[in-house]
Amino acid sequence: MDTVRALTVTPGVAGSLRLVDDHPEPAAEEGAVLVESLAVGVCGTDQEIVAGEYGQAPPGETSLVLGHESLGRVLEDPSGTLQPGDLVAGIVRHPDPVPCPNCAIGEWDMCRNGRFTEHGIKELPGFARDRWRLQPRFAVGLDPALADVGVLLEPTSVVAKAWDHIERIGQRADWQPQHVLITGAGPIGLLAALLATQRGLTVHVLDRYPSGPKPGLVAALGATYHTSTVSELDFEPDVIVECTGAPVVVLDVMCKIGHNGVVCLAGVSSGGRTIDFDAGALNRALVLENNVVFGSVNANRRHWDLAAAALGRADPDWLAALITRRVPVAEYAAAYTAEPDDIKVVVEFRD
């Protein structure tokens, strides 16, 4: 029986991350499209799973293959949807089996009953293995020019959804946004800024680090980098995409947004911290200024396709600079140990 290398964890057990050399080949039941893995990205969700804080193994199993940010090359696709050699990424979330009304129409990112599954996170094996399979409708083809950076597709799909929903909300009135504030210059924040500049908007990015690669990446977009607090900014944004999840920043952006403005919360707070604030004053401002605050997570197929198009329009050198470390799979432990200047860390399966 053929086997593959795979990065696995025992969900709920901290320190259980390991490289298994004899993991079973992906089962045919996983999908018709067989893919050779090139790389997987590492994000905060992976760190939480490795720390034993999150993650669910597939039914009947005790281990979970890690990795939800994928990039690979098609080995075979009997359906003819993709061709051998095509560059591809796998959609992370799958609809629940019921399905709920949203999952039934392909909007599994808006699942209403929580019975969705997710590769490398919740009940589906991830992409951190030499080969993986999936159904054609969950395989997203990429421009061959993105061979070095296509692993960024999953985080880009998250911000593509955020911008899709921002623009839908904006259609409630005659809305002509100009100034955008992005809080947080991690991968999600920088990609949110990229999509904002592609829309011709004036973009400001706020982060706490005055040095390192982030200021230069923001400047390369033609955007402005800030290290002040949100309240110290001398303009009122029309759109804010909050990517830190820091409670103080979340409250600050809701207070800072301009008239008829839209705040998208894309960062996830850890909880457990109480902050005193004037809820009445915040409510008054949001109501009287017709502001909208909404949360956004995950993405459906349409957003993945939008993300692939956005990456195809981006400067490939700028995208490559987001990947600050590339770690061979044999040295996997280093990829899951954060370093100060990390933006996006990638585990590479290709030689």
Rank of each mutant, 00 (worst) to 15 (best):
R5Q: 04
T10P: 00
L17N: 07
L19D: 00
V20Q: 12
V20D: 14
D21L: 02
D22I: 01
P26C: 02
E30W: 00
A32R: 05
V35E: 05
V40P: 00
G44S: 04
I49G: 02
A51S: 13
Q56K: 13
T62S: 15
S63R: 08
V65G: 00
G67R: 02
G72Q: 03
E76Q: 10
P78K: 13
T81C: 10
T81W: 09
Q83F: 07
L87H: 14
L87Q: 05
R93V: 15
D96M: 08
D96V: 09
V98D: 13
P101C: 07
C111Q: 05
T117L: 11
E118H: 02
I121C: 00
I121D: 01
G126A: 02
R129A: 05
W132Q: 01
F138E: 03
V140I: 15
G141F: 04
P144N: 13
A145L: 11
G150E: 03
D164V: 06
H165P: 04
I166F: 06
I169Q: 13
G170L: 08
D174N: 10
D174W: 12
P177S: 11
Q198P: 10
H204G: 10
E232A: 06
E236I: 05
D238T: 09
V239D: 09
M254H: 02
H259D: 14
G261I: 01
V263M: 05
L265C: 08
G271C: 14
T274G: 07
I275M: 08
D278N: 15
A281P: 05
L282C: 04
N291D: 10
V292A: 12
V292G: 00
F294Y: 15
W304M: 04
A310P: 04
L311D: 07
L311Y: 04
R313S: 13
A314N: 09
A314V: 08
A321L: 09
P328A: 03
V329Y: 00
V329G: 01
Y332M: 07
Y336K: 06
T337Y: 01
P340W: 06
V345N: 05
V346N: 07
D351L: 08
